[in-house]
């Protein structure tokens, strides 16, 4: 987390009072499509439509109510938005046309930026590994990505994972879908530093727009 984000987090957290509009306003300003949260009419159709509904800590209906109730920590550390599979059932059915799926991703992204995601959240972990992998060369290195996944819980577990996946790995190699040579360097895009500059700029713009640097 950047220093500025940390500061913003502290300021916002201090200002949040229960059942006030503070956190709702924060969400409106900083979360993608967050300005639609206030239009929820609490009918619960999203909660009933979600195929993963019973496996979440909070349904979208509850998440929206918690935002209005000012439950900042509970919302941002919830696993709910990480469980969304983007099936879009809720968007299709919402009578108020809330882009619920997008809001879920927006909340996940915001929670990640603030570093409030619970430790070991698997969706967040895989996304992070994927993102870091991609950012290095501008291309996804499948071999390194797989290895990073295997070893994310330590060396011994990594060996176990690798052995368990041995058959699949060999088949992929046979089918020329996976090259062992990728371990050294691997394929990359032409202008690596250009990509990284681009991403940095995009982040800067986003931070500015979301008010994180304000």
């Amino acid at each position: 987390m950047s220093e500025s984000n940390k500061a913003a987090n502290t300021v916002a957290a201090a200002a949040v009072a229960r059942y006030r509009n503070n956190f709702l306003k924060e969400v409106e300003e900083r979360v993608e499509d967050g300005d639609m949260v206030k239009m929820c009419m609490q009918c619960g159709v999203c909660a009933g439509s979600c195929p993963l509904g019973p496996h979440w800590e909070h349904s979208p209906q509850k998440i929206f109510m918690m935002i209005r109730a000012g439950k900042r920590d509970e919302v941002l550390s919830s696993d709910s938005m990480w469980m969304c599979t983007s099936c879009y059932n809720c968007i299709v059915r919402c009578p108020r046309q809330l882009p619920i799926t997008h809001i879920m991703h927006g909340l996940a992204h915001y929670a990640n930026r603030l570093g409030m995601v619970p430790k070991g959240q698997p969706t967040r972990d895989i996304a992070k590994l994927f993102w870091d992998n991609l950012l290095k060369t501008g291309r996804v290195n499948e071999l390194k990505f797989s290895l990073a996944m295997y070893f994310k819980d330590g060396f011994v577990q990594g060996i176990k994972n690798a052995l368990a996946m041995q058959g699949i790995g060999l088949s992929l190699m046979k089918a020329k879908r996976l090259s062992p040579m990728e371990i050294i360097g691997g394929h990359k895009c032409k202008d690596q530093s250009g990509i990284q500059k681009m991403i940095a700029k995009a982040r800067e713009i986003e931070d500015r727009r979301r008010g994180a640097l304000a």
């Binding site: 059942y19 509009n21 709702l24 206030k38 239009m39 009419m41 609490q42 109510m65 209005r68 109730a69 108020r96």
Partner: peptide, 14 residues
């Protein structure tokens, strides 16, 4: 009218 109030930021709490 209800929607308009939500737009204006009136909080509705069940």
């Amino acid at each position: 009218f209800y929607r308009s109030a939500q737009q204006k930021g009136v909080t509705f709490t069940k």
